[in-house]
Amino acid sequence: MTDFDSFRRDWLQHLASELRLSPKTLEAYGRDLAQFAAFLGEHLGAHPTLADIAGLKPADLRAFLGRRRRDGVGNRTLMRQLAGLRSFARFGEHSGHLTAAAFAATRGPRLGKSLPRPLEPAAARAVTQAATRAGEEREAWILARDAAVLGLLYGSGLRISEALSLTRAQAPLQPGDTLTVTGKGAKTRMVPVLPVVVAAIAEYLKLCPWRLPPEGPLFRGAKGGPLSPRIIQLAVEGLRGALGLPSSATPHALRHSFATHLIGRGGDLRAIQELLGHASLSTTQIYTRIDSTRLMAAYDAAHPRAQSA
Rank of each mutant, 00 (worst) to 15 (best):
L234P: 09
L78S: 06
L33I: 04
A301W: 06
Q273H: 04
V181L: 00
G155H: 12
A259M: 14
L50S: 05
G264Q: 07
V73G: 09
A222E: 09
P217I: 11
S17F: 15
S95Q: 15
G151V: 07
P118K: 00
K24H: 11
P109S: 12
T250N: 09
S228E: 09
I53T: 03
I232R: 10
T99H: 15
A102I: 12
E136N: 13
P23K: 00
D60R: 11
G238D: 02
L15P: 08
L115S: 03
D268G: 11
H94M: 14
L281G: 12
V236E: 01
P172F: 03
D71H: 14
L212C: 03
S6G: 15
D177G: 04
G108W: 13
R289P: 03
V73H: 07
D5K: 09
F7E: 11
A148N: 09
D60K: 10
W210C: 03
A235W: 05
L85P: 04
T182E: 02
R69W: 13
L50T: 02
G176T: 01
G241L: 04
K206H: 09
E162K: 10
R76K: 08
E215I: 02
R107P: 15
L119G: 01
R70E: 07
A100E: 04
V149N: 11
E203P: 02
H261K: 13
L21Y: 12
R270H: 05
H303M: 04
L26K: 10
R125V: 07
P213M: 00
A63I: 09
L295D: 06
H43A: 11
L164Q: 14
A63R: 14
S247P: 14
R107D: 14
S280C: 03
E139I: 15
L26Y: 10
A46T: 09
H256P: 08
F4L: 08
E215F: 05
T284L: 03
G74M: 10
Y29D: 02
S228L: 05
H47R: 13
S161L: 13
L281Q: 08
L158H: 13
P229M: 05
R270P: 04
D177A: 01
R265K: 12
L19R: 14
P116Q: 06
I231E: 14
Q129G: 12
P214H: 01
I263A: 10
L15E: 12
I201W: 00
L143N: 11
A37E: 01
A249Q: 00
L207D: 02
V198N: 01
R168E: 15
A235G: 08
I201M: 02
